[in-house]
Design a binder for these strands. Structure first.
Lengths: 222, 222
DNA sequence: GAGCACGTGTTTGTATGCAGAGTGGCTTCA
DNA sequence: TGAAGCCACTCTGCATACAAACACGTGCTC
């Protein structure tokens, strides 16, 4: 069964992850509830879940805001991602079945043709996420997987901007991670994953810092 | 400013973390709202946050339930804890200032006398958490710290039961972790933290498995 | 001209009411 | 006697209403 709360949750979550709110923008509950075709009660319940997940911020007496991504937060989220994903890859090496590995291999060769210039950044990011979530699922730990997914949603919009010209490099990195897991080489797999995330991290930081200095400085609350 | 939602959130969070709901028990909103002196609307908003944090479970059409801790979930949460805390300790080695380290040292010697037989398990668990959160705060990453705290809350009740006779061992392990951080030895610090968590993990699993086989099997929903 | 006070319109915070789904017990029938 | 269906009661899901807090613009004062 899908309730009004679930529906609102999914929609607002998508809106937040797809950056349809301006950073640090106050979200008008009445207007949004009208747009979603529900009343404020279920909408607020949904938004409270998103606060706990870090996609929105709540300020008593003022309402809900889009969480703005400053460089510090981005560093923290990438560190979190590294913590979670290196552990996931460690567990994946231990637990992945041959069948699961074959599935990954098929997936990688299926999507290889998409990794060419001209593919939109959003699609590349989405493919990248898909690969990482597949690896995460090999770890056999739904809690870990869930946190990884959440962290992705919080950095996704930066990656849309950052993911340029890096297309073939990403694909090569994924291949490397996969090979290491297949070889059951824990250290190599962890190193490959860490290196891959750090590269992505640096690009993202670059992007945000450029955005901060050149374009637009979101207003900080608190 | 502290709203009704915040108040309800804090109280229900405490109740959940302190195991005042039976595992997998349905929570009666009307009754609980009366008990907390608020109406159902803010209570439901608070409970939705706790769902996102994993302390409660929501089932459409039936309401909110206390999340029950089965052995699988416990394994997953301990793996998560290991992922988060080994990374935290890595960052702590890099970033901790001398002043912060002195603070930890003072803390450790201040609480040393409490680590004796006869101290209630709940207090020992609380001291243990406090130490780990202090280490986590040295990492200088609020997102990481927040996830560590959340993970603690979800396993706390098992630790109350599991934490017996292990009192001096815990204290020794903490000393070891601290020494390694102070010596800026990343590998030693990570190993010490990992070993410490795994010991705790095994005890917790033991406890839950015993509880499952002997005492009480919470009803699984789903 | 700058800053403060006031008032109005807007938005949030929470209580409440009602419809409908869920639950459990009772009856009835095989 | 056991199981299935029905009925009544309870509880959730959501909309709405109202009060209180906030934001902003205007006018007054220094």
């Amino acid at each position: 069964m899908s309730t009004s709360v679930d529906l609102a949750y999914e929609q607002v979550r998508k809106m937040a992850a797809n950056f349809e709110f301006k950073p640090a923008e106050r979200i008008n509950e009445t207007e949004l509830s009208k747009r979603l075709g529900a009343s404020r009660t279920p909408l607020r319940e949904a938004m409270n879940r998103l606060v706990a997940e870090g996609l929105l911020v709540f300020e008593g007496g003022r309402g809900f805001f889009c969480q703005s991504l400053n460089p510090d937060l981005l560093v923290h989220l990438y560190e979190l991602r590294e913590a979670l994903e290196t552990s996931a890859v460690r567990l994946a090496v231990e637990r992945a079945t041959g069948e699961q590995l074959q599935d990954i291999e098929r997936y990688l060769s299926n999507i290889a043709p998409r990794y060419i210039d001209g593919t939109p950044a959003r699609e590349i990011v989405s493919l990248d996420e898909e690969f990482h979530l597949k690896i995460a699922s090999l770890a056999g730990n739904p809690e870990l997987q869930n946190m990884i997914e959440l962290t992705y949603e919080r950095i996704r919009y930066v990656r849309w901007i950052a993911m340029r010209d890096k297309i073939d490099i990403t694909h090569a990195a994924h291949q490397g991670i996969y090979e290491a897991i297949k070889a059951r080489d824990v250290d190599a797999a962890i190193d490959a994953m860490r290196e891959h995330i750090r590269t992505s991290h640096e690009e993202a930081i670059d992007t945000v810092e450029k955005a901060y200095s050149q374009l637009y400085v979101p207003r900080q609350q608190n």
